[in-house]
Design a protein around this nucleic acid. Structure first.
Lengths: 208, 208
DNA sequence: ATCCATAACTTTACGGTGTAAATTAAACAC
DNA sequence: GTGTTTAATTTACACCGTAAAGTTATGGAT
């Protein structure tokens, strides 16, 4: 029989290593700097070797996006305080997302880049995005069910997410024309969009 | 003396022709399809000829963005109803922007693309963006001065702009997870962000 | 009319890219 | 060993941005 096929664990390991190298390259020098050749150079293989692990460059970027999505979702869960007041939870998550953007603006840009193939083309990406979104929707639903917010939780979350995202997007693109700190804009925006959730302060009472 | 230098009018004419060809290429096949070589091919010249009119590819894209900004600003002014109620004006402009995005989503993406050099690198781009932004700020100021809105008009406009932009950006990127029509999300968002401007209906009274 | 300085334009060239195809190298069964 | 199968590399091609060299055309001076 033939030479042993690559162990599946090994494949995953190399994929991860390639992803890490690609992400580093992307963060350092932008999307155009990410090439299979430089990737191969950095990982010490031939320039066609990455094709063993990614069908093409789009697939590589999809893998990068998946990695970002997962860490983004992790960030959301880590910042959350399940069991406490929905306003406090959303507030904490908002803060965590800002921190994520501050720490890795390139990752945030990549996740929401408009020049990437649509999410629908990559079911695994879509799944993580949906999971993260549904996670947030559940928090809003907690508020609507308590009668502290009116409307479809999905609509509410979509609008809140989109609104904050707009400012984050402009910010990372260097297109905010005003010298305000980011929080000074997103914070009131969030409170306004989720009004009247933040009107009354249930935080201490409910989390106790 | 030497051969006559190109007439400045002629230069502008060719630049415009190149821009139009580039924009068409961009709309049809995306940013990666825009190359000096294909541009030259379409305009019937050698592949280095575009360098006579643009220092490099970044400069070409800056020119494309400028063109988009100007048409975007035109769109805003054309939709506006100066002299009428600020709520009605912002409402009309909001509608016009949605129409712009619907008609030319690629142009909208290009204007706000995060992978382009920062606005600050191109004073002429910045100028048009500021002009458009200030134009909108003036409308908000009209509302704050009438006591119908509280806060710094620049902050208010920034938040409103950013918020709506977030949904438009997700939409054009194919990343809206929900099957809502765009207006069904941006419309209430705008009203909420500019609350309490839309609470009372001054439209008919003031525009009469 | 001839010559030539200068600007416009084209051709050639280089290093880089994504990716397909051909080639080589390595590991196991026999 | 030989043969088979797979991994990995090498080669190749078409395209790209861009620099440099080479060519052509056009004006005025002579």
């Amino acid at each position: 029989m033939p030479r042993a096929a690559l162990d599946n664990r090994e494949i995953q390991r190399v994929r991860r290593r390639l992803c890490e190298a690609a992400l580093a390259l992307y963060r350092e020098e932008g999307a155009d700097a990410v090439s299979f050749r430089r990737l191969a150079e950095r990982t010490g293989t031939s320039h066609t070797q990455p094709y063993r692990y990614f069908e093409n460059k789009d697939a590589l970027f999809a893998a990068l996006r998946l990695d970002c999505y997962q860490r983004f979702f992790d960030c959301i869960r880590d910042c959350d305080r399940p069991g406490s007041d929905p306003a406090a939870r959303l507030q904490a998550i908002h803060h965590g997302i800002l921190e994520f953007v501050r720490a890795q603006p390139a990752d945030y840009q990549l996740m929401f880049a408009a020049d990437q193939p649509p999410l629908a083309d990559y079911p695994d990406l879509l799944a993580v995005r949906r999971a993260a979104f549904d996670y947030l929707v559940a928090i809003v639903a907690q508020a609507t069910e308590a009668g502290r917010l009116d409307g479809d939780p999905r609509d509410i979350m979509h609008v809140a997410w989109g609104a904050v995202h707009g400012l984050l997007n402009l910010h990372t693109a260097g297109q905010l024309l005003h010298g305000r700190r980011l929080e000074e804009l997103t914070q009131p925006l969030l409170r306004t969009v989720l009004h009247p959730l933040f009107e009354t302060d249930h935080d201490v009472l409910r989390s106790a």
